[in-house]
Write a protein that binds this DNA or RNA. Structure first.
Lengths: 199, 199
DNA sequence: TCCATAAGTGAACAGGTTGTTCGAGAGGAG
DNA sequence: CTCCTCTCGAACAACCTGTTCACTTATGGA
């Protein structure tokens, strides 16, 4: 049997095909933005049969989300030791490196689902961080988390879209200055002890 | 001449047609959400010829934006006298009344451009309010405004989408508690005098 | 009332997209 | 070397968009 496909290591053809499609998507996103890219574009660029595409993915969205799992700067580690929202600066710096990509994904020609996906990841991470710092699980916590994530995403999008001009450090400063006081109040209310030492 | 059309008062047929299309759009949005609605849907529901539609609008987006100008709860008045971000509670209450509509516009089946449009309106309003309270126009101000608007929109969307449960009052409280401390710091830095009396 | 003119009709059109199917052929694993 | 899997490519139905055109209505000023 050729396709005795060990789950982690499929047929070489399969790898080649998927890689070609993913690669084509990245190229096209950078050229046109996410939304305008069509399946037809993809199969042309990847030089792959239409039926082949649908044998591997259901959507262009499926392609993207598959690729996105390999980009790991999306995962802020819930580091309860460092300063609050330590992920912020690192993220803005990563975004700067991948600016064209981020813009194509989150900006005007970006995709609704993509933003939603990013928001979900970040929401989970922020929630975990606050819990690790002693916040009590509550509806109110979720409100605060939503605010923080919304602010962060808005900054990122507006920046990638050139609506605002700033360095990553300035973005980080503004984000934390705006959001942290309120967050800290929540933390102090929830846990008797003072929150972690950091800034 | 029949269509001696005074600019403000067009032919009765024109009014009828446009109203029918706008009405159809609202109905369809409430039924399916914004994104899934097609021009074909619109002309069927409005019982209007396709060519007629394109004689009046370029897009379904054009229809929506035209209608949106009549909804006025989108315009927070820059009331420098009251408490900071006084628009918040009123808005959340309006959103509650129009919940189905807001959800259909901003939620999963909403439209990217719609969100962007709302953000633009709100951004201008918030910026004006902060300026009226003595903030200096600066890149940093824009960052703070972006944060605040992002937080507000995120709350609204998540709430309309039933991702979080709360009353308008609770939303208002959470929003202001999270964002205001940071904003106040900005205001105090910019203007020598203390910011307005309010909360 | 009359009727020239603007507005609406409905069908057809070219062009684009999606997702599916199927037989034939090429490639890999053992 | 052989057999099974994957890929090809073309064709397909279904849907959508925007535009055109000859024809019919309805409006509102004279």
């Amino acid at each position: 049997m050729p396709g005795n496909a060990a789950p982690g290591n499929p047929d070489r053809r399969v790898r080649r095909t998927r890689a070609a499609i993913r690669h084509a998507l990245m190229e096209l996103i950078l050229e046109k933005g996410y939304e305008p890219v069509t399946v037809t574009d993809l199969i042309n660029r990847a030089d792959v049969g239409r039926s082949t595409f649908y044998a591997h993915f259901t959507d262009k969205q499926a392609v993207l989300f598959g690729s996105l799992e390999e980009l790991d700067f999306l995962r802020p580690s819930p580091d309860a030791g460092g300063p609050l929202f330590a992920f912020s600066l690192a993220m803005f710096e990563h975004v700067q490196e991948q600016r064209r990509l981020v813009r194509a994904l989150l900006g005007r020609r970006g995709g609704r689902e993509v933003v939603a996906h990013g928001e979900r990841l970040l929401t989970a991470a922020v929630r975990d961080e606050l819990l690790a710092r002693g916040a009590a699980p509550s509806p109110h916590l979720d409100l605060v988390v939503t605010c923080a994530v919304g602010a962060f995403m808005a900054l990122t999008r507006a920046w990638a879209d050139d609506e605002i001009t700033a360095t990553p450090a300035e973005l980080d400063t503004a984000f934390r200055a705006t959001v942290i006081p309120g967050v800290r109040t929540l933390l102090e209310r929830d846990s008797g002890r003072r929150p972690s030492p950091a800034e």
